[in-house]
Computed example of a mutant assay.
Amino acid sequence: MAGTAKASSRTILSGNRGQRRTEIEHAYDSRGRISHTTDRGDLAKTDDDTCTRYEYVNDDDKHVYTPQKAGGDADEGV
């Protein structure tokens, strides 16, 4: 199941302050595991975006497919 999934939300703010829109996108590898996440945070702001990449240890002989590390930020790109 390689591919992407995106979720968006809208929150009505109190005190007649309008609304906040947010968005997050997940990309998946061929095993259906998350390969990276792009969190755009508040879409009205550009300084709150983050990107996290995930790497896995794959040992087909032992059927071990575990997360190795996660890290990154929006400056690294996806």
Rank of each mutant, 00 (worst) to 15 (best):
T4Y: 14
E25I: 12
E23Y: 07
A7I: 04
T38P: 01
T50W: 00
D48Q: 09
D47K: 10
S8I: 04
D73I: 13
D49A: 07
R53T: 02
E76L: 10
T4C: 12
A27C: 14
R21G: 05
V57F: 13
T66A: 13
Y65G: 02
I24C: 03
T38R: 10
N16M: 13
R33S: 05
R21W: 06
T4P: 02
T37A: 13
P67I: 11
D61M: 07
E55T: 09
D49L: 03
D39Y: 01
G72K: 08
G77N: 10
T11S: 08
T46W: 00
L13F: 12
L13I: 09
S30Q: 14
D39S: 01
R21K: 09
K62W: 10
T46K: 01
S30L: 13
T11E: 12
M1H: 07
S9E: 11
G72D: 09
D73F: 15
R10L: 06
T37H: 08
R33Q: 11
L43A: 01
G41W: 02
N16H: 12
S14L: 05
G77S: 14
A27L: 09
G3C: 00
G15T: 01
D48S: 09
T4M: 14
E23G: 06
S35A: 12
G71S: 06
T4I: 13
D60R: 03
Y56W: 10
Y65S: 03
D60P: 02
D60F: 06
N16T: 13
P67A: 13
D42T: 14
K69G: 03
K6G: 02
Q68A: 02
A70H: 14
C51E: 10
G72V: 00
G18W: 05
A44E: 08
S14D: 15
T37F: 10
N16F: 12
G3R: 00
A7D: 13
A5V: 09
G15I: 03
G41C: 03
T4L: 11
Y54F: 07
A74Q: 13
V64E: 14
I34V: 14
L43Y: 01
Y65R: 02
V78M: 11
S14W: 05
R31E: 10
R33Y: 03
T22V: 03
H63E: 12
G72E: 07
K45Q: 15
L43T: 07
Q19K: 07
Y54C: 02
D73C: 13
D59A: 06
D73V: 12
K62Y: 12
G41M: 00
H26F: 13
R53G: 00
T11Y: 08
I24H: 08
K62A: 15
Y56C: 05
Q19G: 12
V78F: 08
